[in-house]
Design a binder for these strands. Sequence first.
DNA 1: ACCTGAACACCGTTCAAGT
DNA 2: ACCTGAACACCGTTCAAGT
Lengths: 195, 195
Amino acid sequence: VGRRPLISLESIVQASLAIADAEGLGALTMQAVARRLGVTPMALYRHVRDKAELLDRVVEALLTEVPLPADDLPWDERLRTMGRSIRTVARRHPAVFPLLLQRPATTSESRRVRDAVCLALQEAGFAADVARRAERLLSTAVLGFAVSEAGGRFRGHSRRTLDEDFACLEDGIRHLLDYHLGTRSSSSTRASATS
Amino acid sequence: VGRRPLISLESIVQASLAIADAEGLGALTMQAVARRLGVTPMALYRHVRDKAELLDRVVEALLTEVPLPADDLPWDERLRTMGRSIRTVARRHPAVFPLLLQRPATTSESRRVRDAVCLALQEAGFAADVARRAERLLSTAVLGFAVSEAGGRFRGHSRRTLDEDFACLEDGIRHLLDYHLGTRSSSSTRASATS
DNA sequence: ACCTGAACACCGTTCAAGT
DNA sequence: ACCTGAACACCGTTCAAGT
């Protein structure tokens, strides 16, 4: 009656992420998390229903690491910044990141990022429903690339090649957005850096 | 000495895929595969080194289900057909398909599909190295969409919405290819079906 | 309220043994 | 050559019990 908690949901999630980062998703077990926290595995079940929920929380934590750019930046810079942030988070947590593509994008943190993207697209001139569709496809491409890179699908390609690939993806997205906006001012559109 | 095999690598892979399709990736265990084949779990280890290799084989089997379009079709139709085939395979094997984005794209079956895409892109007019880059980005977008859809990230969106999303993705890709080819004949480019 | 000890069903994997 | 039986370490999860 009135014992101070030794662990919290937050410490559990943080420990889980650290384990997955260091030893892979296979090493992320309830026992490993408990051991790292100096507690028995059963203690975790007070804070988390089961392992599935733990994984949900860990994935959610990834999205928390994506910072939202300042409001006063132009919409295209905001999109570019978020895309790069996502890629950075993927490189930081390569074992867990792929799960992001497999869970419903309806959690609060995923909504937080998505709303920021949609807002930028609407400021660019897209109608709300078009912006939502564009966000879906755009995030799919960026997440797909980040997962591929983090998960090792592009193993064998140099960092330089992948950076160029990503720049090419950014340019492609920018071009398509300009095209749909009917914008002629392609001044900020870089020349295709193929090679 | 000279006993006829009860099981084969092929039957193991097929049983594994059937289990994953029916009950999810979590139900795909060595014991479950063995039970389905009427054999003890240890019998599997004669044909497969460990579970990791089994998963590799199963993923490889997914790619086998992607048919290569006829050579005499125009390059753009070939690309479109392959993209749609990939999406179909993803919908057929939603539990296993996400793994495709997490393994090195260097296996023989993945090379088979990739070479076909690169060839189409080269026939379109791209240089070999540009074609390879385009293939990487293009397959990332298509696989990313297929994984998202199969894995449930887009749960809550109607089939119709997702079909339109995919059509929009196809159009976007087509537009970018045309743009990089410097083609003016945009007759085959559909008007943007936003909504 | 929070944690533990003991227990259960299940998992991947090995090894020696059978035919 | 191919499969089995027995065994091991580990996993997620429960339940009653301790403080």
